[in-house]
């Protein structure tokens, strides 16, 4: 475990990837990585499937990369000491395909999260093309602990809970959240996301970093609105709605100590009760 950091400069890359154009998207990532590095950014976060675009359908297989392949290695090397989260389609040795997010640091891929929950209803069709991941693992981000959630993962309480119980300082949620339900007030999806993210930050007493894409695919807009929430649920930075943007946010990890001392929610959590009750519920069903 590396020495604990205090200050982290985060950059949210709220981009519009080109659908099914890996070369162009790799190039865009390289440019933004170089610029962020020059600006002294510590953590650069791209959205879900940032290297491929979202509505891939049969293009999924053409876009897939191995996690230890050259494409990601090139990005990691370009990032150097800077940490980067980027979204891609992962192909494993058995030719299974996953919606994945890579965490890169110190010139290598250090962690890969495979999306656990693949929405396959309404306007979503992920389960047809992708295999769900089966692990929720926090990781050492080089001075703090972090956990990744990909879009639908964040709609399941168990995911932030499991990450929180592994002692994370930061939840990173990446998404391709579509704009819909445009009646008066906030967009339906946007309202739900804002409420969820603020609540997770408050209940897990962590920083929540959210990067949602923008742009259009087959008539569907992705709404953006990326942001950073502090451990009290407060908004620390927000990107605009429906527009490409780079948004920087300076956080101080010592704010976590203040929040956790003032109100020891995470420290008081009783894992043995959760474990016992979940086991009872699970056995009752089996």
């Amino acid at each position: 475990m590396s020495e604990r950091r205090t200050k982290v400069r985060i950059r949210l890359a709220q981009i519009a990837p080109r659908l099914g154009d890996l070369a162009r998207n790799l190039d865009l990532h390289s440019q933004l990585i170089a610029a962020a590095r020059a600006d002294g950014v510590d953590l650069l976060v791209f959205p879900e499937l940032s290297l491929t675009g979202y509505y891939l359908r049969d293009l999924v297989a053409d876009m897939a990369l191995p996690a230890d392949g050259r494409e990601l290695a090139v990005l990691a090397e370009a990032a150097g000491p800077m940490r980067v989260v980027a979204g891609f389609v992962e192909r494993d040795s058995q030719a299974r395909l996953y919606c994945a997010a890579a965490f890169m640091a110190d010139a290598a891929v250090r962690h890969v999260h495979r999306k656990l929950y693949l929405p396959t209803y309404g306007m979503f069709d992920e389960g047809r093309y992708l295999t769900p991941g089966d692990a929720v693992r926090a990781f050492d981000a080089g001075g703090w602990r972090a956990g990744l959630m990909i879009c639908e993962d964040a709609w399941h309480l168990s995911v932030p809970l499991l990450l929180s119980r592994q002692g994370v300082d930061m939840l990173i949620a990446v998404s391709c959240s579509p704009a819909r339900g445009i009646t008066v007030g906030r967009m339906a999806g946007q309202a739900a996301w804002e409420d969820m993210l603020a609540t997770y930050a408050r209940l897990t007493q962590s920083f929540v970093v959210f990067c949602n894409r923008v742009g259009w695919e087959d008539g569907v807009a992705f709404w953006g609105g990326s942001g950073v929430w502090g451990p009290g649920g407060e908004v620390l930075a927000r990107a605009p709605i429906l527009e490409e943007a780079l948004v920087d946010c300076h956080i101080d990890l010592r704010d976590l100590d203040s929040a956790r001392i003032a109100s020891p929610l995470v420290a008081d959590e009783r894992d043995e009760v959760t474990w016992r009750e979940l086991e009872r519920i699970f056995r009752g069903r089996a």
Binding site: A179, T183, V184, M187, G215, W216, G219, A221, I241, L242
Partner: peptide, 23 residues
Amino acid sequence: MAELELDCGLVEKMLVGFLRDEI
């Protein structure tokens, strides 16, 4: 008829963005 009431400013922004992008 609140259920069908649009946020016209936001819908305009979306549809202008849609036409610009998709064309």
